Computed example of a mutant assay.
Amino acid sequence: MKKKLLDITRDKIRLKHYSMKTEQSYVGWIKQYIFFHNKRHPIEMGKSEIEQFLTHLAVNRKVSPTTQNQAFYAIVFLYGEVLGVDMKSQNIQALRAQERKHIPAVLTKEEVALILANLNGIYELMVSLMYGCGLRMQEALNLRVKDIDFGFDKIYVFNSKSMTDRTLPLPQKLKERLKRQVEKVEQLHRGDSEAGYGSVYLPHALEKKFPKAKYETKWQYLFPARNIANDPRSGVARRHHLHAQTLGRAIKVAAQKANIHKRVTSHIFRHSYATHLLQAGIDLRSIQELLGHKSVETTMIYTHIVAEMNKGRVASPLDM
């Protein structure tokens, strides 16, 4: 039986080892593109139809530039990787979504401490690590036991958003707690193995190269999920890492309990980390490397945050 277009797209995405999140996003945008043009097959459409869809997103749906770009990349993937049509050279001229430059919210050190005080157990440890190392949520979730080097006090971050591996100083305040967390993972893994499970997800290339690695303790997630679950791609029953939504909810509840009225998400701890380093006199280039930014221009946003904070030192005429 001939495979459907979206099934072929999923196969191509998995062949390139893209994340499940990227797969869901790309397939979702491709569906919307097809439905927008009344279910016409993409091979019958081209530059004009892509421009119409992207313009619709900007004008009618008022999506952000990032969202519009995501839709564009999904469609380019469809044509280039699935249909064999090069759209990158077509000079697509859709109306661009209006880009708004905004300064991200950051927490004070006192506010970070308040939120941590309202978190418990593994969530408090994870958020402490995210703030202490400037980790993205997904980077923290993806940490494996082997990524914590207690001998050299380093944390290794692989397969990050920037596609650049990096090392970070291990916060000394968390060292003993992380050792205990590793012991918990070892104990949990022994129990899983005895129960007939014990394997962990590895990218296909690694699993093929090291077929026994998925059963080794060092490859287990540092922050494992509470329950065994079926892998949505392979159907194999195994223990994955904690779910991002679960951690996100814990952070939201903790911020509410701490009575903090800023928009607190997992990423605010990364912003706060960079801002506090800058305030402490750490140079911008070092912060860029710690955050894993490809360009120093991305890191420059934190100089604007500090500059805005310094404006607060200028007194209002009412207070003079």
Rank of each mutant, 00 (worst) to 15 (best):
K3A: 12
K4R: 12
K4P: 00
D11V: 13
L15M: 14
H17T: 08
S19L: 09
K21T: 14
S25Y: 05
G28W: 12
I30E: 06
I34Y: 03
H37G: 07
K39D: 15
K39F: 12
H41A: 09
P42A: 10
I43P: 00
E44K: 12
E44N: 11
K47F: 05
E49F: 06
I50T: 11
E51D: 09
L54K: 03
L57A: 01
A58F: 06
V59G: 00
N60I: 11
K62C: 06
K62F: 01
K62I: 04
P65R: 10
Q68I: 06
A71V: 09
I75R: 02
E81A: 08
G84I: 08
G84T: 07
L95K: 12
L95V: 14
R96T: 12
R100P: 01
K101E: 14
L107F: 07
E111H: 03
E111Q: 13
A113V: 09
L114P: 00
L114C: 11
N118G: 03
L119N: 02
N120P: 01
N120M: 10
G121I: 08
M126E: 02
M130L: 11
G132T: 10
M137V: 15
M137C: 13
M137S: 11
Q138R: 15
A140Q: 02
A140K: 00
N142H: 15
F150P: 00
F150T: 08
K154F: 14
K154R: 15
I155S: 00
Y156Q: 11
S160P: 01
K161D: 07
K161V: 07
R166L: 07
P169K: 09
Q172R: 13
K175D: 01
K175Q: 05
K175Y: 00
K175E: 00
R180Q: 13
Q181E: 10
V182Y: 02
E183R: 10
Q187G: 02
L188A: 09
V200C: 13
Y201C: 01
L202A: 04
L206K: 08
E207L: 12
Y215W: 13
T217H: 06
K218D: 14
W219Q: 01
Q220R: 14
Y221H: 10
F223M: 05
A225Y: 04
A225W: 04
N227I: 11
G235C: 10
G235I: 11
V236S: 07
R238N: 06
H240S: 13
A244Q: 14
Q245E: 15
T246H: 11
L247E: 03
G248V: 09
G248A: 12
V253I: 15
V253F: 06
A255K: 01
Q256P: 00
Q256K: 14
K257F: 08
A258P: 02
I260G: 03
V264D: 08
S266C: 14
H267M: 08
I268Y: 03
I268K: 01
F269H: 02
F269V: 07
S272T: 15
A274Y: 06
H276W: 05
H276A: 06
L278K: 04
I282V: 15
L284Y: 06
R285E: 10
L290H: 02
L291T: 04
L291E: 05
G292L: 07
S295M: 05
V296E: 10
T298P: 01
H304R: 11
V306A: 08
E308C: 01
K311R: 14
S316W: 11
P317L: 08
P317G: 07
D319S: 14
M320R: 11
